[in-house]
Simulated assay, not measured.
Amino acid sequence: MKIAVLAGGVGGAKFLRGLRHHLTTIHPDGDGGHTDEVTAIVNTGDDVWLTGLKVCPDLDSIMYSLAGANDEVRGWGRAGESERVSAELTAFGVGWPWFTLGDLDLGTHIARSHHLREGVSLTEATARIQARWPAIGVRLLPVTDADVPTFVAVEENGMQTQIHFEEWWVKHRAALTAEAFVQRGIEASGITDEARDAILSADVVLIAPSNPVVSIGTILGIPGVSDALAATEAPVVGVSPIIEGSAVRGMAAACLTAIGVGTTAEAVGLHYGSRADGGILDAWLVDKEDADAVPALHAAGIRSRAVPLWMLDDATSGVLAAVALETARDISA
């Protein structure tokens, strides 16, 4: 079975780990992996060039998590990190002192930047870096090879300005009211051939419970992504990142408010819309506490199920992934 997953950040990483756990259980290959082909199409809007290095937060967070190399306490970066290089950069007055990159993490960024400067694409650079951990079991693809950094329109010190998403997210912790999110260069970008092929050849397409605006929304804004989702014969099943009116993780509420969408599972599902009406969803999973959203979603042409969505560990995430695949099979039947 070929499975394509649109994903970003920690929510995407947890869901992919659960999916891998489920597939390893039902379709083991004898070497601790699985026989299915899983491709993650990952948000690149958070990416930034910093101190001469290409930093890809979502690609790296997902890669480290799948490799078992992530810092489970902080929720980001590598386990067992030191931060001597970042301290030196701060002493030199270089970079962002509030955006601390660990020494092991910097190794990833140096390797990626080296490959890019050799002239290879971000897709190829990602494949070379992923080879560092051959047992990941998921193919990681950036949605685009172009630079499409997300900037946030805010009012700062009485003036209208745009700041990089990471500054708004990490430095200001989303305390500055976001008026809009702007992906610079997105009009001239495009979905990679590899990401398009993964969607078109998939048996199932899953939308991970990632930020609907700056992760999934950015992916959908890349020219060619929506067309591929409309053209694929695979059912498209999404998982809500909102439970009982709250974002499971991060600051999705502030992002949704900026685009005029309510912080509810129903509102996000309706925002994505039914594929039959030009949206992206065939089905939408909401938490059992949001079961009252199901009738409105059905009325909008989106099949919906209320199931437990909390991803407490790989086992519970695996159960959720299994439900998503079961829902896709029901659509295809």
Score class of each variant (00 low, 15 high):
residue 85 V to D: 00
residue 85 V to P: 03
residue 85 V to A: 12
residue 86 S to L: 00
residue 86 S to W: 14
residue 86 S to N: 14
residue 86 S to Y: 00
residue 88 E to V: 14
residue 88 E to H: 06
residue 89 L to M: 13
residue 90 T to E: 13
residue 91 A to L: 11
residue 92 F to H: 04
residue 94 V to L: 15
residue 95 G to Y: 13
residue 95 G to W: 07
residue 96 W to N: 11
residue 96 W to I: 02
residue 97 P to Q: 06
residue 98 W to M: 07
residue 101 L to W: 04
residue 101 L to C: 07
residue 101 L to Q: 10
residue 102 G to D: 10
residue 103 D to P: 11
residue 104 L to C: 00
residue 104 L to W: 06
residue 104 L to G: 00
residue 105 D to V: 10
residue 105 D to W: 05
residue 106 L to H: 12
residue 107 G to H: 07
residue 107 G to W: 07
residue 108 T to G: 01
residue 108 T to I: 13
residue 108 T to P: 01
residue 109 H to M: 05
residue 109 H to T: 05
residue 109 H to L: 08
residue 109 H to Y: 09
residue 110 I to L: 15
residue 111 A to E: 09
residue 112 R to W: 00
residue 112 R to M: 15
residue 113 S to N: 06
residue 113 S to K: 09
residue 114 H to V: 13
residue 114 H to Q: 10
residue 114 H to C: 08
residue 115 H to L: 15
residue 115 H to G: 03
residue 116 L to I: 02
residue 116 L to W: 01
residue 116 L to T: 03
residue 118 E to C: 05
residue 118 E to I: 02
residue 119 G to C: 10
residue 119 G to D: 07
residue 120 V to H: 01
residue 121 S to K: 04
residue 121 S to I: 00
residue 121 S to T: 15
residue 124 E to G: 01
residue 124 E to L: 12
residue 125 A to E: 02
residue 126 T to M: 06
residue 127 A to T: 10
residue 127 A to D: 01
residue 128 R to L: 15
residue 128 R to K: 09
residue 128 R to G: 04
residue 129 I to P: 03
residue 130 Q to L: 12
residue 130 Q to T: 14
residue 130 Q to M: 10
residue 130 Q to F: 03
residue 131 A to I: 08
residue 131 A to E: 15
residue 131 A to N: 07
residue 132 R to D: 09
residue 134 P to T: 13
residue 134 P to D: 06
residue 134 P to G: 14
residue 135 A to N: 10
residue 135 A to V: 02
residue 135 A to H: 11
residue 136 I to W: 00
residue 136 I to C: 09
residue 138 V to S: 05
residue 139 R to F: 04
residue 139 R to G: 02
residue 139 R to M: 02
residue 139 R to A: 12
residue 140 L to I: 15
residue 142 P to L: 06
residue 142 P to V: 07
residue 142 P to Y: 11
residue 142 P to D: 04
residue 142 P to I: 05
residue 143 V to L: 02
residue 143 V to S: 06
residue 143 V to I: 15
residue 143 V to Q: 06
residue 143 V to W: 02
residue 144 T to I: 06
residue 144 T to V: 10
residue 144 T to A: 10
residue 145 D to T: 09
residue 145 D to Q: 08
residue 145 D to Y: 11
residue 145 D to K: 08
residue 147 D to V: 13
residue 147 D to F: 11
residue 148 V to N: 04
residue 148 V to L: 09
residue 148 V to Y: 05
residue 149 P to M: 09
residue 151 F to M: 11
residue 151 F to C: 01
residue 151 F to Q: 06
residue 152 V to K: 01
residue 152 V to S: 04
residue 153 A to Y: 02
residue 153 A to K: 14
residue 154 V to Y: 00
residue 155 E to Q: 12
residue 157 N to D: 15
residue 157 N to R: 12
residue 158 G to I: 10
residue 159 M to S: 14
residue 161 T to S: 10
residue 161 T to A: 09
residue 162 Q to N: 13
residue 162 Q to A: 13
residue 163 I to W: 05
residue 164 H to S: 04
residue 165 F to L: 15
residue 165 F to R: 01
residue 165 F to K: 04
residue 166 E to G: 02
residue 168 W to H: 13
residue 169 W to T: 02
